[in-house]
């Protein structure tokens, strides 16, 4: 039990980030803040992956004298891809927010959805 906090430190941080990010996505009405929450949420999962690749006293997997324990490089490589995907998601999300701001003049969901619904006529 005494080992539960320091020994699993990264996992606790990951859980904390995960929950904070999810709450931020669900709770905030500002669209940019939502994107920040989304990034935090994704970072939690990245941290989890990176942590599981680490082996105690393990080194980078290179052939050199005196190195016999290796960390697992695969999760790190996977997360490299996932980070790129996360950046792309953020970029598309922010681009949409810019377009929304141009169309509605605000990035606050409450302000946008409080307006009366008008059905714009589609010009054929």
């Amino acid at each position: 039990m005494t080992d539960a906090i320091p020994g699993l430190f990264n996992y606790w941080v990951a859980i904390g980030l995960f929950v904070c990010g999810l709450v931020m996505i669900l709770d905030s009405r500002n669209m940019i803040r939502k994107m920040v929450g989304l990034n935090m949420f994704q970072s939690a999962v990245f941290l989890l992956f990176i942590t599981m690749g680490k082996v105690e006293n393990g080194h980078a997997p290179i052939l050199a004298d005196g190195i016999s324990r290796f960390s697992n490089p695969l999760p790190h490589v996977l997360i490299l891809t996932a980070i790129v995907v996360g950046v792309a998601t953020t970029a598309v999300g922010l681009a949409l927010v810019v377009r929304i701001r141009r169309a509605y003049g605000t990035v606050d969901e409450d302000e946008i959805f409080d307006r009366p619904e008008v059905e714009p006529e589609i010009v054929p």
Partner: peptide, 21 residues
């Protein structure tokens, strides 16, 4: 064409990104 397409897309993006994560 409707500006609400942007809102729909944004909402799908947030939900979709959570789902993918």
């Amino acid at each position: 064409r409707d500006p609400r397409a942007l809102l729909a897309s944004y909402r799908y993006l947030v939900m979709g990104a959570v789902g993918a994560t």
